[in-house]
């Protein structure tokens, strides 16, 4: 049976990238605990508009935890208190009547605030553009079953590929590092046989772009703890290993030229 909650929200309000921003305090009364956190914000926004006040801007789209649009810090924790849950899937039944809740955007130099809780995550796209793909021209593929992939390998690649690119890992990392995001894509592709030809160039160039925007990894494990998809930091270790191996390899092999190997 659902019940109603009366809450006090402290939400970061910032008009634009240049504005310095500050917390605004809002009463959220009569919140049904079956609501999702975003539905609660919808209710608050409808009331704000009713009062002629600017509603709180936040990114969101699918509201089923897969598009990666939503995400902000709730009481000091990216995506809030429930492990393995994006804010759109976080339900108010995990809060108590009378709670004070602090809501703040992701904070990282690479993620400038656009407005309120909305940040730009464009550097994530840049990292993928640097090599987060397998070059497979349309129409040139051979039969799908001609490459056998052991189930454990496919499963592990999938575990890495489950990343939704929400940015919680960066938000949680005390260093503002994007190692979990980057390593997940590298691991997904570098584990698969199809990914081998570009394996070494991929890790080198993706890491380079990553480091041009983000901090470094000091193995705090905060990223793994807040990742809504439970991506493991083992993939970071794998990325480090591939990066080190790539650096110790012959440059000609790195180029993926005729001397390139598939190992």
């Amino acid at each position: 049976m659902s019940k109603n909650l009366n809450l006090t929200l402290r939400v970061w309000r910032q008009r634009g990238p240049a504005d310095s921003g500050a917390f605004g305090t809002y009463k959220a009364d009569g919140i049904n605990d079956d609501m999702s956190f975003l539905e609660m914000l919808d209710v608050v926004n409808e009331r704000l508009i009713g009062d002629g006040k600017d509603p709180i801007a936040f990114d969101h789209d699918c509201r089923e935890g897969i598009c990666g649009s939503c995400g902000f810090v709730i009481d000091g924790r990216p995506h809030g208190p429930q492990p393995g849950t994006t804010v759109c899937q976080l339900h108010m039944r995990h809060f108590n009547d009378g709670d004070d809740i602090t809501v703040e955007p992701w904070r990282a130099a690479a993620f400038p605030i656009i407005k309120d809780l909305v940040v730009s995550r464009a550097p994530f796209d840049k990292i993928i553009q640097a090599g987060g793909y397998i070059s497979a021209p349309t129409g040139a593929a051979r039969d799908a079953n001609s490459t056998l992939i052991p189930k454990p390998t496919a499963d592990l690649a999938f575990d890495a590929a489950a990343c939704i690119g929400c940015g919680a890992c960066v938000a949680a990392c005390p260093n503002g590092a994007a190692q979990l995001f980057t390593s997940a894509k590298i691991a997904h592709l570098n584990l698969l046989p199809q990914g081998q030809p570009e394996r070494w160039s991929r890790v080198t160039s993706m890491v380079e772009v990553m480091e041009s925007y983000f901090g470094s990894c000091t193995n705090y494990r905060e990223c793994e703890a807040v990742c809504p998809k439970g991506i493991s930091i083992d993939f970071i270790a794998k990325m480090n290993r591939d990066f080190l191996q790539a650096k110790f390899r012959d440059k000609k092999k790195l180029a993926g030229g005729p001397l390139g190997d598939a190992g």
């Binding site: 793909y133 397998i134 129409g139 593929a141 051979r142 039969d143 499963d155 592709l189 698969l192 199809q194």
Partner: peptide, 10 residues
């Protein structure tokens, strides 16, 4: 075929 070549982990 195309998606497997791209690395989609079916």
């Amino acid at each position: 075929d195309q998606c497997v070549a791209q690395g989609v982990p079916f």
